[in-house]
Structure formats: structure tokens, C-alpha cells
Write a protein that binds this DNA or RNA. Structure first.
Lengths: 236, 236
DNA sequence: TTGTTAAATTGTACCGGTACAATTATACTT
DNA sequence: AAGTATAATTGTACCGGTACAATTTAACAA
């Protein structure tokens, strides 16, 4: 692991262990330099990472402060999307409805940048947090990149498997959000009624080399899903 | 303007003018260094900014490539939230329903980190994109930070005014998303029916010194709002 | 042609430095 | 006590460098 990542983790741990709250001040940069015995730019890089994650904010001339939102029930929009799990103490489980190899339809192929004659894995799951229905997920993996999947892998974290077993790294993703109404079949799976409101998120996940490898459609249970997104002004 | 910001802008312009698409390659780092006559770290910083904005991705050993999502109808979730307007060619207008000074209720005061005896500006608007109803917005500004507002300012971009006229800088924001059903009064304003689906976003905007100055509740017209969020893997 | 090895290309991690801007603390005045 | 100038603190911009890892290209062998 890289130094600046390691340091970022340790600082994050420190904040949690000390139970620091919004506005609490962290040690100054120079002290961190000597504490971790690295150069200023390495500390800066670690802090920048934490800033992007919404864990701290820095104020020139003043110091480094803890940033923390105050709504326990909300999940990070990104945590449910395959990235670093940030669900805290909540337990995520899955019912696997389907894992199979197939040919993609035109829409799926287009989103994955492949041909309709190429193979994809289709995975269908219903996911739960602490036993409550969270969402219905239908996702497609490019078989050329993810050559093998089974129900055990899929019941767990697919992304962990892909990264550790296949040695590929996930780079970035495009998420498309839209509110709509449930179809009858979706309603059954989520334990709701037809035409009930829902949040639909389509996501295209890319490897770090820019190639799409996963296209997924998620339909959320509107009563069990609330999300937080922490944004940093100048960058968006 | 800072060098690295300036360079980031110029590169962004270049991408648009050349109409580069996903996967197209940009000049290599070393060439950019000489072209803009700055050091490597300044170019790196500019590129990092563009990477965060979802405009490029970098690939060690290979080059710098354009990243571009391919769904024209979708607005960036952040563009409608006061940050850098990225709506492209679409025109954003507002009906101002209310601009007044008042005392906040307990909930608003809590979200703004102030006392119920402190003054706030209450702003209520209906916003349109290209003439279509986009959302209903109710927002509260800490009067101690934003001492004056009127209907002209509010009809335009409040954030531009706050930053340029008041000389404060916006630092970061926490957004809370939730799907629900419209109340009758909301439905009237949006031209929909009661109990229709809707996306509700509450946002707390902070200055760069960490102080909250704006708490807003937005209710979106579910048929006229679709959002894109571009995420970068390792940072979330 | 196909695969393998070696070399060149190219971005990233990390160092250490100077200058500076924003904030906060201090000393001083009124 | 309250304002005002001054100094100290503290993070950010920018420079220029070395080493290195990932990728691509070129050279080579089977």
C-alpha cells in the first residue's frame, strides 16, 4: 500500500477512535510530517484524499478540521455502488436470483461498448440491509474481463472478487439517476405495490484503463433507501 | 486565477473545441509542461482537477484520455446544486415565490447550526429548464452571513452573488437524497398530481471555513429530472 | 504468424525546497 | 473594553528533481 493511502487510513482511524466531531481540529501539518516521518507533499496528498471522501476540510492559516455529516440513517450513495463499503455497522446480504452467461441485448451491449455477439454474465439479486429489502439489481459483466462467476461469489462482493482474484482495478463509474414507478414484477420482489415510487440507478463501471466491464440497473425500495452525497465545491 | 485552474480550463476548452470523445488521447504530460511553461506538478494538479470533474482519466505508461458520458439528457447532480453550472446549452429560469426575513424553526436552525432566535432569509422558487418545470425549492440563508437578498438577486444565481458581492467562498456541501410522494401543494406547483413520485434533496452548504450558510429542500419533477454522477473509484 | 523478451514511453509516488495568502494571536493604542 | 496594527501560525501554489511501475513498442526467436 502506498504511503499516502496508509497515512490517510491511519488518520481516519484516529478520528473514529477519538470520536472526533464536526469542527474538531487535527494536529497541524508539520506535526504530521514528523509523526509519520514523510515529506510535506505526502501528508498533503493523504489529506487531500480525506478531503475528497468528505472526512476533513482544510483551512489555510487555521488548520485541519473534521467534517462529519450528522444523519445516521443515510448511506453514502457510493458505498452501495460497489466502492469502498462505508455502511458502518449495517449488514448487507443478498438473494441471488440469477447467474448466467448470455448474449446482451442492443442496449446492454451499447452501454458496455461491446458487440451483441460477445458474452456477458447476467446477475440478478435482491439486496438487504439489516434484513430489510433495499433494492433489486440486474447487472451485466463483460465475460472477456470477468471470465467466471458463481452464486457464492455473487452472494458476496463481486467487486472484491474481481479486484483480488482477477487482478484488475476499477477506475471510475458513470451513474444515471431517475425517479419512476415500479412495475408489477419489481413490486413483488421489493414487497411493494405496482406504481409505487422508486429510485432507479443505472451505472457503468469502468476499469482503470477506461474499459467498461459492468453495467447495472438498480431499483431501490423508496422507504428503505436514503442517501448522502458529500461534495466539494470548487471541483464540481 | 491560479495557474493550475487556468490550465485546467484551457484543456477543457480544447477538448470541447476539438470535439474529442471518450477514449481520445490528449498530448502527453511533458508536452503540456513545455506548452504552458510550468512545472510537472502544476500540470499534474490541473489534470487531477479534470479527473475529479470526470472529464479525463489518466493511465500510467499510456497517456491521458478523454472521459465523457454519453447521455445528453442528463444533468450533473452537482450542477443543479449551485456549483459550477454545467447545464451546457440549457436555460435555467426561476419563479420567485418568496424572499423574506424570518426566524427559523427548530429543524432549520439545527441544520444551519444556529439558534432559533437568529435571522434567516427564506427563499422559495420554482425552477425551470428550457421552460419545463424542474423543481420546487425552499431554502434558508443565515442572515449573519448573507445580510441582504432581493427578488432580482434570487431570480438569478444566488451563489454567484454570494461569492462575488459578499466575497465569501463556498467550501463543501452535504446532500441528502430521498424518494417520496408529492403533497397536494407541491403537486400544484409542479403541475403534477398528489402522491406522484418525487426526488427530494436536502442540502447543507458550507463556506470554506466550515460554517453552514444555506439549507435547502428541493422537490424534483420526476419526469423532467434525470441526473448523472461521475465517480472516481479509489476515492469513494 | 505467434509468442517472448527487451527497450522506450509515460504517468505516479515521493522528496525537499521557496514564496505566499489566509487566519489567528499578540501587542498596542484609544 | 474595543478597535487597530503587527507578528506568528498554518495550509497552498509552485518549482525541480529522482525513482519507479504500468503500458506500449520494437526486436527477436520459434
Amino acid at each position: 500500500m502506498l504511503k499516502y493511502q496508509q497515512i490517510a487510513n491511519e488518520i481516519e482511524q484516529y478520528i473514529h477512535k477519538q470520536n472526533l466531531k464536526q469542527g474538531d481540529k487535527l494536529p497541524v501539518l508539520e506535526q504530521m510530517m514528523s509523526q509519520y516521518a514523510v515529506s510535506k507533499s505526502t501528508i498533503t496528498k493523504a489529506l487531500e484524499l480525506l478531503e475528497r471522501k468528505g472526512i476533513i476540510f482544510q483551512l489555510r492559516g487555521s488548520g485541519i478540521f473534521v467534517r462529519r455529516h450528522n444523519r445516521p440513517g443515510y448511506m453514502s450513495l457510493f458505498s452501495t455502488q460497489g466502492f469502498k463499503s462505508n455502511l458502518g455497522d449495517r449488514i448487507l446480504t443478498s438473494d441471488v436470483l440469477d447467474v448466467s452467461v448470455m448474449k446482451p441485448d442492443a442496449l446492454v451491449a451499447e452501454n458496455l461498448g461491446i458487440d451483441v455477439t460477445d458474452d456477458v454474465y447476467r446477475v440478478e439479486r435482491v439486496r438487504y440491509v439489516d434484513g430489510e429489502v433495499l433494492c433489486h439489481e440486474e447487472s451485466y459483466y463483460v465475460k472477456a474481463i470477468v471470465p467466471y462467476l458463481n452464486r457464492e461469489i455473487v452472494a458476496d462482493s463481486i467487486f472484491d472478487y474481481v479486484q483480488s482474484a482477477l487482478g484488475v482495478t476499477i477506475g471510475f463509474s458513470d451513474m444515471y439517476l431517475q425517479v419512476g414507478r415500479l412495475t408489477e414484477s419489481e413490486a413483488v420482489l421489493l414487497g411493494l405495490e405496482e406504481d409505487d415510487p422508486t429510485l432507479r440507478i443505472e451505472t457503468i463501471f469502468h476499469l482503470s484503463n477506461g474499459k467498461p466491464f459492468d453495467y447495472s440497473r438498480i431499483t431501490y425500495h423508496y422507504e428503505h433507501s436514503q442517501f448522502v452525497v458529500q461534495a466539494n465545491g470548487p471541483y464540481m
